[in-house]
Design a protein around this nucleic acid. Sequence first.
DNA 1: TCTACTTGTCATTTT
DNA 2: CGAAAATGACAAGTA
Length: 767
Amino acid sequence: MLSLKKYLTEGLLQFTILLSLIGVRVDVDTYLTSQLPPLREIILGPSSAYTQTQFHNLRNTLDGYGIHPKSIDLDNYFTARRLLSQVRALDRFQVPTTEVNAWLVHRDPEGSVSGSQPSSGLTLESSSGLQDVTGPDNGVRESETEQGFSEDLEDLGAVAPPVSGDLTKEDIDLGAGREIFDYSHRQKEQDVDKDLRDGAEQDDTWSGEGAEALARNLLVDGETGESFPAQVPGGEDQTALSLEECLRLLEATCPFGENAEFPADISSITEAVPSESEPPGLQNNLLSPLLTGTESPFDLEQQWQDLMSIMEMQAMEVNTSTSEILYSAPPGDPLSTNYSLAPNTPINQNVSLHQASLGGCSQDFSLFSPDVESLPVASSSALLPLVPSNSTSLNSTFGSTNLAGLFFPPQLNGTANDTAGPELPDPLGGLLDEAMLDEISLMDLAIEEGFNPVQASQLEEEFDSDSGLSLDSSHSPSSLSSSEGSSSSSSSSSSSSSSSSSSSASSSASSSFSEEGAVGYSSDSETLDLEEAEGAVGYQPEYSKLCRMSYQDPSPLSCLPYLEHVGHNHTYNMAPSALDAADLPPPGALKKGGKEKQADFLDKQMSRDEHRARAMKIPFTNDKIINLPVEEFNELLSKYQLSEAQLSLIRDIRRRGKNKMAAQNCRKRKLDTILNLERDVEDLQRDKARLLREKVEFLRSLRQMKQKVQSLYQEVFGRLRDENGRPYSPSQYALQYAGDGSVLLIPRTLADQQARRQERKPKDRRK
DNA sequence: TCTACTTGTCATTTT
DNA sequence: CGAAAATGACAAGTA
């Protein structure tokens, strides 16, 4: 059983260790540095928590007795601090949330453009993340979320650098199909990007006026469908829906393929494939954040490493080895295992590709078809604009995606995936590693049961309530007022003990209360008057309350053994009965038989100062001496003719008495501080567990999304037919998302080139 | 008797 | 600058 002293000493040490272990230092540092001076002061020195109690004032006013000198400040402070810590933790860990939400929100063609800028990525703490945290609702802020979506996707590693070099305007003609399907986004991207980019890239590529009409159509299409709940399940569905739209368009496109329009011509390739002349945003869009096999994994990995580093700061359990493991593709990861696609065999049967309405897509297709038909066939670099704009969710989800890089085996992707290709699915897939999940789960479960976020929140609430019961009792204004508001020992003890305090604690508290209230410095047997009783009710109750609060409240913690020492009876502690027997009768009033006994007992019970005062025949009680305000005290002294020795003794008594109270308060504050810190640790641990659970859930959702995307890719690709009605070979062709949401079928060689080019960009940007 | 603990007290610092 | 409060350290008393 730990003693109080031991608790004070070792407890602090343990607490410090605990803080460091759980990575709380980050938060603590934050608070120490700026936000909340009180904590710093609590830890480092005097503070609001140590605000000097105006005992005189409190004592002189009836209200003063009901005020805990410290608890209010501490309560407010810790409440604010806890909230702030939660907010910050959410801010930090909300990043995955934002990412997931981004996945799910359908992209608005306008809003998404800016988000696809290469320069917008690389910061986990994007504005969108903060918005998601602070914003009241995600659903309303669709555009914001979409932007955040794009950004977050890039953050995940999808930063697609502008394609350089290999594909230039000279290499590939810009065809009508390109304009048809890409211009709108290009134009919008230009609008947004012009301001943001250095303009080194040629923007005029897309400045054809004829395409504006098409752009409008595309814009309309993109806006038709697309406000999706930012929730994960809905987002999945919406993603599937978008893909389905693509598929429908694809199906509608099949006749073209039969008519030899499907093999995309050079011009359409040019349109679809970013060239040096294209705005960076477009180029960026050409690679999927999650699916590109070139540079994306690095960014993605970096992002996740950042995330993991953050996590590690707060969770020692998640060590670097774990994070490394996370980046290794789990064997079961569909993205890694299902590269080679059997067309027409969607992996995820749950994805319904035929239930979504196509509305605008049809229109787009009608626009699309005539152009395609008129286009010459260039089989060598065939590029099929498969889907016009309406699949904006896909576009927003993946930016411009080289789906081939994701869904085809590295060997099929050629050199582009030499390095990053194998890693392609890894960064995200690795995060979903079951081992990691299990680890986190265990971590979470170690602190609180339940894995479902809903359950987690519920658990959190429960924990909060529990903690409030266990730890906040002494700090919550309500409990404080209830305990201190009680004017009698019985009521106070009962009320305070009602909060599940142990019998020993309550008894000790009540006893100490009564004893101290009765004795204290007011046990001067000479003058037993109303002031005596006043002393019992006035000053001492305060002390008893302090003790009660400090000792009894922690009892629910069930880990504070020092409670058992509360009941110690020291010289100044006397049972009320004994007190009455000893103090009430004047020294000479007792009968001879019990007089000596009474006197001896009284002497034993009196404090040294009381003895001295009585020996010096001080004409008033020690309680008065100690507790009277300065003015009244001086007034009292002036009423009597006191010797110098008496005056000196009185001053000493006053000094010692005040110091005694000060010491008691000081010790109580120490205890309160420790308890509050302990509670904070618990809160932080709880928050950490909750955030970890959320992260796991998000990762799980992400994995599901990836699976769906993969299956949809397979579905779409498998339904593609060339002019001869034969399916395309996955080894020769790949689907790629363009920046405007269109899906293009491009030769693998072209995709590899793009991947290679984009591989360099992020590196350059990092410099 | 020893140990751990609480409380009181002193000296000093802080407010 | 002085009073009051806070606090570390130590002593005394108790279990």
